[in-house]
């Protein structure tokens, strides 16, 4: 009995240790990938075709879902807050609230979540498949650097696409909010958009865009790392995809909080 307990305790400790070591190794790998990408940035022009292709893929794949999420997100925000504000006859503050929360938080976050599901997962699956079918090795055999050839274009494309789509998401959410405000809350379009224009702050915009840029680097680097570290055939590719989506979500939430805290609060 005691022996069994002891050995399972042993296993628990060593498994936890192994997991921790793997996580540390993985984080190191992702950071190195980002660093190498920065070095490879001098090939941005040479790789422009691949970058544009990746941007196109990311944009086209996610634009429909982005539109629906943004439109309905704006409508829900408008309705929920509007019904509360209406009790006090303050419904013209709805646009202020929408533009603020979308610019600062929800725009970058929602778009990042959508792009993780579409592009991040696709990156992990694609690079993972290449890894397990020895295509990455074939590149190394040809002295082609996988970071320059595959990772850098993806990180750059994501860093351009995510902020761009974030702007799009914010605009659509504002439009969705306008429709609901008009029909459900009786706020005229004129009042609504005047409020919007009055409530846009430059700081909110650049913090939001900076946030989505950071999210983009996080998503692309985590997804590419997971792909490049995949093993054990198709099963491993599935695992790499799943893990990269979950870890991207966690990192986005955590890092997102800290960016907000740095720009708007006292840190922690």
């Amino acid at each position: 009995m005691f022996e069994v307990l002891k050995s399972s305790f042993h296993k628990l400790i060593s498994d936890t240790g192994a997991k921790l070591m793997y996580q540390l190794g993985f984080s190191g790998f992702s950071l190195i990938l980002i660093f190498k990408t920065v070095v490879e940035l001098r090939y941005v022009f040479a790789k422009r075709k691949e970058i544009i292709k990746q941007m196109y893929v990311a944009g086209v794949k996610s634009i429909l879902v982005c539109s629906i999420v943004a439109l309905f997100g704006g409508m829900i925000l408008s309705l929920q807050t509007g019904l509360q504000f209406k009790v006090y006859g303050q419904q013209e503050f709805v646009p202020t609230l929408i533009i603020n929360i979308m610019n600062k938080e929800l725009g970058p976050l929602l778009t990042a979540i959508i792009l993780t599901a579409f592009s991040g997962a696709a990156m992990a699956a694609e690079l993972g498949t290449m890894k397990v079918s020895e295509e990455i090795d074939a590149l190394e055999m040809m002295s082609i650097d996988p970071v320059r050839f595959l990772v850098m274009p993806r990180i750059v494309a994501m860093s351009i696409m995510l902020p761009t789509l974030t702007i799009y998401t914010v605009i659509l959410a504002v439009l969705g909010g306008a429709v609901v405000s008009f029909f459900q809350l009786g706020v005229t379009f004129e009042t609504y958009f005047r409020q919007i224009v009055d409530s846009i702050y430059f700081k909110d915009m650049y913090v939001g865009l900076f946030k989505s840029f950071v999210f983009a680097v996080i998503i692309a680097s985590i997804s590419c790392s997971n792909g490049l570290l995949a093993k054990d055939g198709a099963l491993g590719v599935g695992r790499a995809t799943r893990v990269s989506v979950v870890s991207s979500y966690l990192m986005i939430l955590i890092v997102g909080y800290f960016i907000t805290a740095i720009f708007y609060g006292n840190i922690i």
Binding site: M130, S133, E134, E135, D137, A138, E140, M141, M142, S143, I144
Partner: peptide, 26 residues
Amino acid sequence: REKMGFLFQGGALLNWLNVRDNIGLP
């Protein structure tokens, strides 16, 4: 590695390039 060529077990071709571009890639 520059002195070597490696024929991988499954061919290891890049799936977004056609046959010609795969061969010419290096």
